[in-house]
Design a protein around this nucleic acid. Sequence first.
DNA 1: GTACAGATTGAG
DNA 2: TCAATCTGTACT
Length: 211
Amino acid sequence: MKKLSRRFYTRDTLTIAKNFLGKFIVRKWRGKKIIGKIVETEAYIGPGDKASHAFRNKRTSRNKAEYLIGGHIYIYLVYGMYWQFNISTSAKGKPECVLIRALEPIFNNRNPKSQIPNPNKIPNPNFQNLKEIKNLANGPGKLCRYLKLNKSFYGEDMAGSKRIWLESNGEKIKKSDIVAAPRIGIDYAGKYWSKIPWRFYLKGSPFISRI
DNA sequence: GTACAGATTGAG
DNA sequence: TCAATCTGTACT
């Protein structure tokens, strides 16, 4: 497993949104590691993107983390109760980010590669069935609960943090295994921007938020 | 000070 | 399909 460095986060945002798929979020919490494989993302590319919080270079105290160099966490609350976990992308001063929308929970860190293809056989005795496991992180609010994330992570640097980072197991996701679709919950952005296919997910994964 | 949106979720 | 839910944000 290789930790992802700054170089990974400073590239083109759509490329990163696709390359996040299949990577592992590692969260150190109370001496343990909570791990999830990213299976669903969305790109938000301000200032041109009407669905972005940084549309027209809007700057507020909430969204300022979007302007940081790639790799920093932009986390905020929606509906008064759900956290949304974003990672800033591209160069400093460009308000671009990727929303992490769903994770496949990983319970055994010894050989992540071997256990990925068969979600029906995840060896965790704490859970009885796939339905229970899916329910842990198949949505942007739920995955923050699973990873124990809150506002204290605002602006945290994924390339330097000791409590959250990304790892790669070297697996190359085939282009044909990535589905591009319209982003969720942004109808307010109008016909064009709510239809543009900047949501990406792993084809056939049972752990995505919705079809 | 205060109105109000909201990148959701879970139940039906 | 639909409404509960409630805090931070962005305005006055």
